[in-house]
Design a protein around this nucleic acid. Structure first.
Lengths: 339, 339
DNA sequence: ATGAAAGCGCTAACAG
DNA sequence: CTGTTAGCGCTTTCAT
């Protein structure tokens, strides 16, 4: 049987509460007993039972991370490990463990979130994306619980979040292409139900409007955030009688797929068609040609979200702070023009 | 205050134990009370406290995943999300949550593992890599606890693991190059303390020996599993007066770095120097030239490891099963020769 | 089929 | 500075 706090207490000739105090480094406890208790713990190979501790303390020192139900898609995108790296670094520094939810498809992630919220196994929750009319936001609205979103809620919600200014960023990206002389510019978006897709699309629209370029529905293609989607989208765009001369892709993976499609059909990039992506994942430097991309500072998003969440959990009060992480367009070789 | 099992009991006019039975779907409980209890739960918005449940049941329905302390390096490699995807899929299917350890550098991950083992927050642990004289293996040896390793322990240990036959796989890869007529073949390895690096190096040696090609220490370069390491290694290899005409890299990222270095120095791949990598990450298809790589079935490794672990946790008995996931070399354009 | 009672291992007032 | 006493919310014998 593994040793409990009582065993240690008995061994050290003190009461359980004293042992408890030693564990949590209570200030007013004599050095002597501290040493004795520690010795007893050592001898008995004692390790605290975190469950019992959490149950009594009503806090678990763990952060829940809600993995969107579309596991495959999500894990496939370099965004995920990078944002998780940011989260992990903060969690580690602040002494929190990470609990990954493992929701099944669709409706399941509502249940997953509710379980996280009510199950008491985590002190707060991190959401990694948001959709239009996201039922998760509903849940958060109805259940006061420390939570932070990476992205932004579609509607105004009393929840803290970290986001990029996606409208502005995509506006800039599109302007860049316009500045290069392009008039017919395509848009490859990820899943339309994601808020981020909508925002970027809006930025694209803004830039076109401002330049007096008419909108053309045929130039906009949405799929999921994977390479395949970009491939498909680009193929469709190139099949148009009046094909675009440039494309802004709302994710680097989409851009890569687009570039592959173009390449296979014999178009050169950037001479025949310019491409700009989003996220600035490592791959952008290595692709051929290297991909001009909007750096959204994924790692930073993760770090900021984790910090915001922890601040809430510690403060014991829910906040609706929001932080905008600046973006920056990194010019490479997929657009031609200035280098 | 959130509703507890007692509240539900009171509301439904039954005892707490009955409610508990309803929750765990106990067989002999009348449909009628079941319905009534469920109704009461609904009305009160009751959700079980997982901590209390775990404490009483002495099991948490969670799997611990030990992230190696070198966070950055690890997250950067596409291996990680892919193996995690496999793990997640199984965990989700079997109803387990995932607890990511967040150990700090060096010695910390021993502590992290011990905490996982004794903290009772997880029912089993998944290790994602193993080193030579790995202190973690020590810990596992001394503390009987369900654990599964992806990789293999350096020495024989009563622990279950999933691995590739890395010696054989690298032997094959090297033979492939030899078969293509290469006589001077370099080896770019990851961190030498990893067992997997050693195994692949051994396969490389075997192939050379068998072909009567003398070993040359200068042809072997080890660094970490990142692109930068491959870049550095290749640069060094190419600086040799008698440079190799081919290189086997023990990780695709290393191979990409190597290709970049070669390219920048004006060497063509595969004409001037052939390259083969390991892992067959998605990127291999997209690089230029596409990279010949050994498919180790990362996802499968994750799935198998999770299954093995769950089997142990459920069986209540520690095992030392081990499974070898087959590898397959995927020929692309980085080696020339047959296509 | 259901209830009563005794914990699971720890923390947190409240005393002293 | 330390001990006593109640729980935290749930499961699980043991009765009935």
């Amino acid at each position: 049987m593994t040793a409990t706090i009582k065993d240690v207490a008995a061994r050290a000739g003190v009461s359980p509460s004293t042992v408890s105090r030693v564990i949590s480094n209570h200030p007013r406890i004599s050095e002597k007993t501290k040493r004795e208790v520690r010795a007893a713990m050592e001898e008995l190979g004692y390790h605290p039972n975190m469950l019992a501790r959490s149950l009594a303390k009503k806090s678990s020192d763990a952060i829940g991370v809600l993995i969107p139900s579309t596991t495959e898609e999500f894990f496939m995108n370099p965004f995920f490990p990078e944002v998780l790296r940011g989260i992990t670094d903060v969690a580690k520094r602040e002494g929190y463990d990470l609990l990954l939810s493992t929701s099944d498809s669709g409706k399941e992630d509502v249940r997953s979130l509710t379980r996280m919220i009510h199950g008491k196994r985590v002190d707060g929750v991190l959401l990694l994306s948001s959709r239009m009319q996201d039922p998760l936001m509903q849940v958060l609205q109805e259940n006061p619980f420390p939570a932070t979103l990476i992205g932004r809620p579609e509607i105004n919600l009393p929840i803290s979040w970290v986001n990029n200014n996606n409208v502005e960023a995509c506006y800039q990206a599109t302007r860049h292409l316009i500045g290069l002389g392009h008039k017919r510019i395509g848009f490859l978006g990820g899943d339309e139900t994601f808020v981020v897709t909508r925002d970027r699309l809006q930025g694209y629209h803004q830039a076109l409007d401002e330049a007096g370029i008419p909108q053309d529905r045929r130039l906009m293609f949405a799929s999921s955030f994977v390479e395949q989607g970009g491939y498909l989208g680009m193929t469709r765009l190139l099949a148009l009688p009046d094909r675009p001369s440039a494309v802004v892709a709302s994710d680097d993976l989409l851009a890569f797929g687009a570039m592959r499609a173009a390449g296979e059909l014999g178009y050169r990039i950037p001479e025949d068609i310019a491409v700009v992506g989003f996220n600035n994942v490592r791959l952008t430097e290595m692709s051929n040609p290297s991909l001009t991309s909007v750096d959204v500072q994924i790692y930073e998003l993760g770090v900021t979200a984790a910090n915001l969440l922890i601040e809430q959990m510690r403060g014991g009060v829910l906040m609706d702070k929001h932080v905008i992480v600046p973006t920056q367009m990194v010019i490479r070789n997929s657009c031609g023009g200035r280098k």
